[in-house]
Design a protein around this nucleic acid. Sequence first.
DNA 1: AGTATAGTTAAGCAAATACTTAATTATCAA
DNA 2: TTGATAATTAAGTATTTGCTTAACTATACT
Lengths: 107, 107
Amino acid sequence: MARLPATRDVFAAIADPTRRSLLDRLRAGEQPVKQLAAPFEMSAPAISQHLSVLCEVGLVTQRRVGRQRFYRLNPEPLQQVADWVADYEHFWSDKLASLGDYLEEES
Amino acid sequence: MARLPATRDVFAAIADPTRRSLLDRLRAGEQPVKQLAAPFEMSAPAISQHLSVLCEVGLVTQRRVGRQRFYRLNPEPLQQVADWVADYEHFWSDKLASLGDYLEEES
DNA sequence: AGTATAGTTAAGCAAATACTTAATTATCAA
DNA sequence: TTGATAATTAAGTATTTGCTTAACTATACT
């Protein structure tokens, strides 16, 4: 037997470093694929496939202009990630706080 | 040809739903594997392998007590994720703000 | 000593992933 | 209409992943 179908969710989408870079670049604003893909040493189809994953989970939207395809960032789905991580934030801030106490006692 | 070695980082570690659940459960405190694994319908080795991934990226630590292995949450590496997502937060809050403006104008 | 318990390591497998090159679609330009 | 450009879809491949069962290690119980 093997694992379950592994529905592609936001967490899976941002697990890939290339896809995170693409999102990072899109923060500069809507861009056509050519421009977006410029810094990557990867074939155009590879980029196209990554963009379609991002599209599927709603992290980007598409707009056609002539023969170009403009991609735009849609960060809302990242809220899911932010929400999940937020539940852990007090754990490390508590740790930092106790480290602070420790340093204070030492000084 | 194929892809590059794909070093396992925090983003990859939290991409798997089972591993996220394990972390969620560990928020209740340090636990032996048996207790931690109880709700999962998965073999013990599968859980063990997930825990070792979490260990590799530093999200959990281990402590041996008799024949038990206690795992403890170490949330610090999640800061990386929090930091990355934080850069996107103003994007969606801007969007919400403009939605707010829109709703205000409508009323 | 013998056996049960907690957990990992080993080996193997099917599906998913991240690429590749080749072919295709669609638009623009001469 | 011919050709170049922008991008995708198709098909194929190597690697990784998430599981499984079987075997192993180590501690505890009787």
